[in-house]
């Protein structure tokens, strides 16, 4: 088999798979399901291959199977630690030994929480709060005011603290209700704009897919 033949087969396979996916526009059918299951199988295999080739093998080569004579026994043991914890995760399938599997989960959650906390504070909250405080650096005072009011009202919209009335119903003060109302407007505008952006992105992808497949068909027809 030549490379050209391989590309030809690949092109036809791509065309067939694309048609199988778009057949869903008619109805949920077995061709679409086959395409989706092909995607699941290949995605699973690619993820597993990437995990082995890009993470596990380099780690094991650098620690457990290191050729370096200076690699100490403790580093080799450290190299085995995540493998051991990962194998413990398998035990979560058994109700009897699930507790041992928790050790791996605890490890992931502990480190993940530390990273998430630092990331949220340093990477999100502080820079955005700084940007919000610099809203009036904008050319127009009105735009700056809209930016600041929009940010604050959006935050107020997501607070659910309220006093309970004598009849048991929660009640907010008028100014809080007003701020929440304005915040809801900003959230709705933002979600609408993001929704439209999603439509435009998917439209671009759709036209790109159609263009690629049409080009392949025209190439085959000699057009």
């Amino acid at each position: 088999m030549t490379v050209e033949n391989l590309d030809l087969i690949a092109g036809w396979a791509g065309l067939v798979l694309t048609l199988m996916v778009f057949s869903y526009l008619l109805a949920d059918n077995f061709l679409y399901r086959i395409a989706v299951h092909v995607l699941i199988g290949t995605a699973g295999a690619y993820i597993a291959i990437a995990a082995v080739e890009e993470v596990l093998l380099p780690w094991l080569r650098a620690t457990v199977f290191s050729d370096d004579a200076e690699t100490s026994a403790s580093i080799r043991a450290l190299g085995m630690l995540p493998i051991f914890l990962g194998v413990l995760l398998l035990l979560k399938a058994s109700p009897r030994f699930a507790r041992m599997g928790n050790l791996g989960t605890v490890f992931m959650i502990g480190i993940g929480t530390g990273v998430a906390l630092v990331g949220a504070v340093i990477g999100t909250v502080l820079p955005l709060a700084r940007d919000a405080s610099n809203s009036f650096d904008h050319e127009s005072v009105l735009n700056g005011a809209v930016l600041l009011v929009g940010t604050l009202c959006t935050l107020v919209y997501f607070q659910y603290l309220s006093r309970r009335r004598s009849d048991g119903e929660p009640a907010n003060r008028v100014h809080i209700r007003t701020l929440r109302f304005v915040g809801q407007g900003f959230v709705t505008l933002t979600l609408g704009a993001l929704y439209a952006s999603a439509i435009l992105t998917s439209l671009s992808i759709f036209s790109s897919v159609i263009q690629d497949q049409l080009r392949f068909i025209l190439d085959q027809l000699g057009g």
């Binding site: 955005l128 930016l147 600041l148 009011v149 933002t190 993001l194």
Partner: peptide
């Protein structure tokens, strides 16, 4: 407005 809204949402998520 969208920058203000997304800024508020992202600070809320943070």
């Amino acid at each position: 407005p969208v920058t203000a809204g997304s800024r508020g949402l992202l600070i809320g998520i943070g």
